[in-house]
């Protein structure tokens, strides 16, 4: 009787593991997309739409950050890598496709009376040199600076484009996602932070830099300077499913969506003619 029990348990286990293990073998129907968490929310949606169009195919989107994504493509762990920064020299051996551009918005609480700062002022705020809104002719309140954590692509882009060699203040509040930065700025009347332009919503206010608001037009005209590319990366020229997915993302349908979500499309939006 004991033996019977053991056998039946064993069979159950086999069935369970069989169910689990036989599925990833359909390599031809799954692609893994990994990398920048700035691109991830958008890529998730693109993947959702792609899978609706192509039932039976699985697009697995994962975060991990730009560097991890680049690494994953190099080692073959992912078919497509996502990066929200330009490739470094030693990474240039990858095949890169720009799928969108993203502005970096400096955001404050909607109730904040200020709506314009110079790049120098922004730098002084984030370096901790300016600590009160009053210095900037705002309210007599201490500034709550909110930044991303070390290693994040958004912080890297901000450091490079705004701070240069100046350090971000140690006292700054650190959060590990654009969403959280936005959430904290939206709740604290004295806060300032930076996030992807695509993620700015009605809960926060994006301010103008040197008099220029972060709009698509200003970015295309290169008047608004805080812009970074969203890249898809492959090991060699994309083919098969990866190519289909990339083509889909570059299609008019998705690029229109890209536009509607606040990113800057690579192709012109639907209203305008192309091809």
């Amino acid at each position: 009787m004991n033996r019977l029990k053991i056998t039946s348990v064993g069979v159950c286990l086999l069935v369970v593991f069989g169910f689990f293990s036989c599925r990833p073998n359909h390599r031809g129907t799954e692609i893994v997309v990994a990398g920048s968490t700035s691109v991830q929310p958008f890529a998730d949606k693109w993947a959702e739409l792609f899978m609706e169009k192509r039932p039976g195919i699985v697009v697995n989107v994962q975060g991990g950050g730009s560097s991890a994504g680049i690494q994953a493509v190099k080692t073959g762990a992912a078919h497509i890598g996502m990066s929200s920064r330009e490739l470094k020299e030693d990474e240039k051996d990858l095949y890169e496709i720009e799928v969108a551009k993203d502005g970096l918005a400096i955001i404050v609480h909607p109730s904040n009376p200020l709506d314009n700062l110079t790049i120098d002022q922004v730098r002084s705020i984030f370096s901790g040199e300016i600590t009160s809104w009053k210095t900037l002719n705002g309210r007599d309140k201490e500034i709550t600076v909110v930044v991303r954590e070390e290693g994040s692509g958004t912080r890297g882009a901000f450091q490079e484009m705004v701070m240069g060699k100046t350090r971000i203040a140690k006292r700054a509040i650190v959060e590990d996602s654009n969403g959280t930065v936005r959430e904290i700025v939206s709740r604290d009347p004295n806060a300032i932070g930076f996030i992807s332009l695509g993620l700015v919503n009605e809960k926060v206010k994006a301010i103008a830099l040197n008099g220029v608001f972060p709009t698509e037009g200003a970015i295309l005209k290169k008047e608004y300077r805080l812009v970074r590319p969203f890249l898809f990366l492959t090991k060699e020229e994309p083919k098969g499913l990866a190519k289909e997915f990339i083509d889909f993302v570059l299609s008019e349908e998705i690029q229109t969506l890209v536009h509607n979500e606040g990113l800057i499309p690579i192709r012109k939006g639907s209203g305008e003619t192309n091809d």
Binding site: F20, S21, P24, G179, T180, R182, K203
Partner: peptide, 29 residues
């Protein structure tokens, strides 16, 4: 991991309820 997809195998990345709640709450989704 934190992929929102329905897990299809032992090797798929997936998001548990607790992680989902953490992300929804913290990022104000």
């Amino acid at each position: 991991g934190s992929a929102l997809r329905m897990p299809s195998s032992l090797f798929s990345s997936s998001r548990t309820m607790a992680v989902h709640f953490y992300i929804l709450a913290k990022e104000g989704v």
